[in-house]
């Protein structure tokens, strides 16, 4: 009887502990969302997202950093997408399974865990100084791209591995070369899930501050960047500036929380698009 009682107690305790931890995780998200919404909701108006900042950023909106963030995403993906996919193709289709390949894979996994501030300093030293791109949209976009590449490679490799060997066999048996097989059969089959991986990656890149603060994001810019060598404002850096450099906190506070809500909506929105696209494609397969 005692054992039965003890088993029952252990079972209840475990259930309670699991529920408790789940509640804590959810509460973190819920509480931060509630806090940010209560602080920033009042700032969200149509003017807020369509007008540039005014009066030392104590008035006006945030359209300049919104556009700047979108431009940064575009530059980073234009760089990271091809490099990531082609690297994944090399690993999955060409590289022999040897020590060198394993070392290279390890190097890429390690790149994924490099802190973003380190990448930011690397971007400053390499893109801004060494390649003379200066502090610019281009340098910042490339640095963000470096952050996205390892994740993209992993996503693309998984997608390529999931292309059935049958397709490759059928293509080779029809007299296709390796590149024809990759270009005409393997890539088109894998592309939907590669794109999904890319979208999830964009969501992450959009929220990064450290890689862009030395390389291209600025405190204030009177207009949009019209060339890749211009500097840009960006949402995450704008938040950082508002939170640390302002003296009129009563005026910049609401703008800061409003900006946070917009950035959250942007990154969550992008990630949700990726997740929905992925589940949609899983259903189709």
């Amino acid at each position: 009887m005692k054992t039965h009682f003890m088993r029952k107690t252990a079972d209840l305790t475990a259930t309670a502990a699991l529920c408790c931890c789940m509640a804590i995780s959810t509460a973190i998200l819920g509480a931060s969302l509630a806090f940010l919404t209560s602080k920033g909701w009042g700032a969200l108006t149509w003017e807020f997202i369509t007008e540039p900042p005014r009066a030392g950023m104590t008035e006006g909106g945030i359209v300049t950093p919104i556009v700047g963030s979108v431009q940064l995403i575009a530059v980073s993906m234009a760089f990271a997408f091809p490099v990531g996919i082609l690297t994944a193709i090399y690993f999955n289709e060409y590289a022999a399974d040897g020590t060198l390949t394993r070392l290279l894979r390890l190097a890429i996994r390690s790149l994924a865990s490099v802190p973003s501030v380190v990448l930011g300093l690397f971007g400053f030293a390499f893109f801004c100084s060494f390649l003379r791109f200066g502090v610019s949209l281009l340098s910042a976009g490339l640095t963000l791209g470096c952050l996205a590449i390892p994740t993209l490679i992993t996503a693309a490799e998984t997608a390529l591995q999931n292309v059935p060997q049958d397709f490759r066999d059928a293509s080779y048996a029809l007299g296709a070369t390796q590149w024809q097989t990759i270009y005409r059969v393997v890539l088109p089959s894998a592309l939907p899930s590669i794109i999904t991986g890319g979208i999830l990656c964009v969501g992450r890149v959009a929220g990064e501050t450290a890689p862009i603060m030395f390389t291209g994001a600025v405190y204030f810019s009177p207009g949009f960047a019209s060339s890749i060598f211009d500097t840009v404002m960006a949402l995450p850096y704008h938040i950082y500036v508002l939170a640390t450099a302002g003296t009129q906190i009563d005026k910049t506070g609401p703008i800061q929380y409003g900006t946070i809500l917009v950035l959250l909506a942007l990154t969550l929105g992008i990630s949700m698009t990726g997740i929905v696209a992925r589940s949609h494609m899983r259903k189709k397969l």
Binding site: D166, F167, D169, A170, S171, Y172, A173, T177, V185, P188
Partner: peptide
């Protein structure tokens, strides 16, 4: 080899049409 495989075609155990 690619010219050879055009002359000697192959049909596999499981039907393997491309996703086209």
């Amino acid at each position: 080899v690619t010219a050879l495989r055009r002359k000697v075609g192959m049909v596999f155990q499981r039907p393997n049409p491309f996703p086209f």
